[in-house]
Design a protein around this nucleic acid. Structure first.
Lengths: 198, 198
DNA sequence: GATGAAATTAGTTCAAG
DNA sequence: CTTGAACTAATTTCATC
């Protein structure tokens, strides 16, 4: 299977930021055409890097119950079960499993549902101990981790930022900090090509 | 302020399921026309119920560094600082603050960045103790739960109902329970601005 | 608020390199 | 793998209710 390249990573980053960003905008940013971006996004979904496009809701103003952090210390061999039952419980938004068999989950629940979660989803036989904490704040920054994408402008050496542009010349992707650097580089490249063939 | 109705809730549910579902499909499901759905979605974003549309990534196959759960027990008065510095650290995806002054954050980091996070973002003076756990699994279940729109009045703290009002001040949307709270807040805000510039 | 028709904008298909 | 051109689909505007 083809590995992810920098272009894929940049497309991912842009879609995490805004899943509805038009493809022509993405195309311009990464220096490709819209159909190619479309193909790549389709591929990213196919190989499972992008699981789905979704809406991030603000639970603070939605008042859909209490926000809780539930930490469970699972008995050996039960981590998978508990993870599954927690993840499928209505209102459970995030489930984290640590290397040392702790399961941490974040849930938005009505008060009466907390007891159900604890008894049904967690049970007794499979759990060493558990802890429930009330959340007072919850900030979420969807971001693709430390996908490195801060190249230097190939023309002037400055770091390429949001305003930067990219272009593909003979299959190779080049990044520029601004359109003038891009134009200058393209110009120089063309001259070089002419010189080589004459 | 107009409350969320069942149609809004259904639209939210459909968008959480698939943020890119076409409006005519949503329209058919909820029995409205596409332009109306468009208007409603716009409103849901305006009032902050929908924070953003994003892509749910599978970090397992993305191999963008290690996934960690960092738990920090903050000293009194430092919860806010630590929350802020963690949230703004590159690679930190989620920050939870519990009622008992614990901060739990989930980060996707390259190995060398872990040390930086611990020393820079957490520091020493403000923290009683901290704990870093390696994550082996991480599941996100975007789901709206039982949605009710009920923000707190930024002026008096009461729940904002049908009679409430909203206003945008310098790009930021504020919700109030009544026009007098709105006026009072606007007044105070203006004073503050004047004081700052003089 | 909500709508249908029109206009605009976005996405996909496809032949070609 | 990528593209531009043609085509199809989705979204937004707007006059009207």
């Amino acid at each position: 299977m083809r590995q992810l390249d920098d272009t894929d990573r940049e497309i991912i980053r842009l879609l995490v930021e805004d899943a509805r960003r038009p493809y022509n905008e993405i195309a311009e940013t990464v220096g490709l055409s819209p159909p190619t971006v479309s193909d790549r996004v389709e591929r990213l979904q196919e190989i499972g890097v992008i699981r789905r496009f979704t809406a991030d809701l603000n639970h603070d103003i939605l008042s859909d119950g209490l926000s809780l952090l539930v930490t469970v210390n699972a008995k050996p061999g039960h981590v998978g079960d508990i993870r599954e039952s927690l993840a499928s419980f209505d209102g459970v938004e995030h489930v984290f499993v640590t290397a040392d068999a702790h399961i941490v989950c974040k849930a938005n629940l009505q008060e009466q549902a907390i007891e159900t979660l604890l008894s049904n989803a967690i049970g007794e036989e499979a759990v060493r101990e558990y802890d429930v904490q009330l959340l007072v704040d919850d900030e979420w920054n969807p971001q693709p981790g430390t996908i490195e994408f801060a190249p230097d402008c190939v023309e002037c050496g400055n770091t390429v930022t949001e305003e930067g542009e990219s272009t593909r010349i003979e299959g190779e992707l080049y990044h520029f900090c601004c359109s003038s650097c891009k134009a200058q580089f393209a110009d120089r490249y063309e001259r070089l090509q002419e010189g080589a063939t004459n």
